Each structure stands twice: as C-alpha cells, then as structure tokens.
Simulated assay, not measured.
Amino acid sequence: MTPLPSALLATVVEPLPEEAVDAAGQVASQAAAATGGDLNILQLILHASLPVQAVMLLLVFASIASWIIIFRKKRVLDRAEREADQFEERFWSGAELSKLYSGTTERHRDIAGLEAIFEAGFREFGRQRQRRGIDSKTQLEGAQRGMRVAASRELDGLEHNLEFLANVGSISPYIGLFGTVWGIMISFHGLANMKEATIATVAPGISEALVATAMGLFAAIPAVWAYNRFATKVERIGGRYDAFADEFSSILERQSQD
C-alpha cells in the first residue's frame, strides 16, 4: 500500500481552464462591487432611459410643488386658528356688537375667519332691520344666510390646493411604478441580442428603474400625511365657524325680539 503523503506528492495538479478563471474573476469583482461599492443615485438617474428620466422629472416637480403648498398651507391654517382665538376673546369680552362691527369696517383692512362671518351676519341683520314690515324671523334668516355664505367662502380659501396634495399622494406611486416597469422592460429587451445573460447584465437597468418607484414614494408620503393633517385641521376650524354662527344667531334672535 502506498503511504498517503507519497500519494499526495505524486498527484499532478492541473491548472484551471481560462474560462473558469475568467468567470471566477467576474464573480469576485461583482461581489466586491456589491459589498464595497457606493450606490450613486445621480449616476443611476443619468443613465436611465428617456421615458424613465421624464417620469423622474415629473415626480421631482410634483414633490417640490407639494412641499411649497405644505409650508404655505401650514402658515395659513395657523393664522386662521390664531385669528379665531383673538376674535373670540374680543367677542366674549362683553364688548357691544355695534362697536365690534365698526371695528371691522372702519380700519379698511381685509378681514377673514370668524371676523368676516361676524361682519357678514351683523351687516345683513342691520340691513333687514332697516326695512319696514320685516318680522324678527326674516331678520334672523337673513343674518344666518349671510354668515353661511361668508363661512363657505372662508372654508374654500382654507381648502385651496388640498386637492393637489391628495392627487400627488394617490398618483405619484403609480407614476413611479410606470417608470419602473418601463425601465425593466427595456432592460430585458436588451438581453435579446446577448448569448449569455447574467444578473450583472440586468442589474444596472433594474436599479435605474427602481429609482422611479422610490421617487414616487418620496413624493407621495409627505403629500398624503399633509393632506390628512390639513383636512382634519380645516374640518376643526369649520366646526368652530359653525358653532360661532349658531351662538351669534342666538344673540341676534334675542336682539330682534327687543
């Protein structure tokens, strides 16, 4: 029996074929790139196809417009709540209604919110009282009608551009998905002329396409969050307007009976 060390020394080690060496080198380089390479989003965007780039550009514009609306809408709603608090404090401080009304009209400034609702209701109430043969019920109905119109106009201003946020939040993921599907379709179509297809051949195109989906989510998530928050805030402010109109109607009803 030949000893084991002698058998190992007698074994002839044959070199690997060149194809195997090349394949091993490619695998090693791909693994090194996957572990140590940095993901360059800008390069993925620049190397994407024109339809995918158009989708990305559209999503960037939608995201920028959404953020502009978000900051402006927050400022508008915060001001509406602040003005409502200030006017309610003046209204319930015991001041005469005629003095409050003259204060809203004599300064020649734009009024909004509860102050505009009060001004519309009291103006219509005074106009109805100056007419002859008008009973108290008709006077009150005229004031309520004026307050409803003013409240509706104020709420329309607060809800302005909320529809755009809702559209961005609901449509952006589908626009990004369209760009991804288009990019993947182009990547696989390019494999038709290749004899050997590997994951390294398809991966760059798929990565470029997936950026469109990521950008769609990046545009949609803030828009959905802001729309839900602002819609709730507008609804809460609208409730304050309705409650004030009901309370002011009760005060006017007592005055009409005097």
Score class of each variant (00 low, 15 high):
Arg79Val: 13
Arg79Gly: 15
Glu81Asn: 14
Glu81Cys: 07
Arg82Leu: 11
Glu83Gln: 14
Ala84Val: 05
Phe87Trp: 04
Glu88Arg: 11
Glu89Arg: 14
Glu89Leu: 15
Arg90His: 03
Trp92Gly: 05
Trp92Ala: 07
Trp92Ser: 07
Trp92Thr: 08
Ser93Gln: 09
Gly94Asn: 04
Gly94Ile: 04
Gly94Leu: 06
Gly94His: 01
Ala95Phe: 02
Ala95Tyr: 00
Glu96Ala: 14
Leu97Ile: 09
Leu97His: 07
Leu97Ala: 10
Leu97Glu: 07
Ser98Asp: 15
Ser98Pro: 03
Ser98Trp: 02
Ser98Cys: 05
Ser98Ala: 12
Lys99Ile: 08
Tyr101Ile: 12
Tyr101Phe: 15
Tyr101Lys: 12
Tyr101Met: 13
Ser102Pro: 01
Ser102Arg: 12
Ser102Leu: 14
Thr104Trp: 01
Thr105Ile: 14
Glu106Tyr: 07
Glu106Met: 12
Glu106Gln: 14
Arg107Lys: 13
Arg107Ala: 14
Arg107Phe: 10
His108Phe: 03
His108Trp: 00
His108Asp: 10
Arg109Trp: 04
Asp110Asn: 11
Ile111Leu: 03
Ile111Cys: 02
Leu114Thr: 09
Glu115Leu: 09
Ala116Asn: 11
Ile117Gln: 01
Ile117Leu: 11
Ile117Thr: 07
Phe118Ala: 08
Glu119His: 15
Ala120Phe: 05
Ala120Leu: 06
Ala120Val: 06
Gly121Met: 15
Phe122Asp: 01
Phe122Ile: 13
Glu124His: 09
Phe125Tyr: 09
Phe125Pro: 00
Gly126Asn: 13
Arg127Gln: 11
Gln128Gly: 13
Gln128Ile: 02
Arg129Ala: 15
Gln130Leu: 13
Arg131Gln: 12
Arg131Ile: 10
Arg131Thr: 09
Arg131Leu: 15
Gly133Asp: 08
Gly133Asn: 13
Ile134Asn: 04
Ile134Arg: 12
Ile134Gln: 12
Ile134Trp: 03
Ile134Gly: 03
Ile134Val: 15
Asp135Phe: 06
Ser136Tyr: 00
Ser136Gly: 13
Lys137Pro: 00
Lys137Leu: 02
Lys137Thr: 12
Thr138His: 03
Thr138Leu: 05
Gln139Asn: 07
Leu140Tyr: 04
Gly142Met: 04
Gly142Thr: 05
Ala143Met: 08
Gln144Arg: 14
Arg145Gln: 09
Arg145Thr: 09
Arg148Asn: 05
Val149Glu: 08
Ala151Pro: 01
Arg153Met: 13
Arg153Asp: 13
Arg153Val: 10
Glu154Gly: 11
Leu155Asp: 00
Asp156Thr: 10
Asp156Gly: 12
Gly157His: 15
Gly157Phe: 12
Leu158Val: 10
Glu159Gln: 14
Glu159Pro: 09
His160Pro: 06
His160Phe: 11
Leu162Trp: 02
Phe164Pro: 01
Ala166Val: 08
Ala166Met: 03
Ala166Tyr: 07
Asn167Pro: 05
Val168Ser: 08
Val168Glu: 05
Gly169Lys: 03
Gly169Met: 13
Ile171Phe: 02
Tyr174Arg: 06
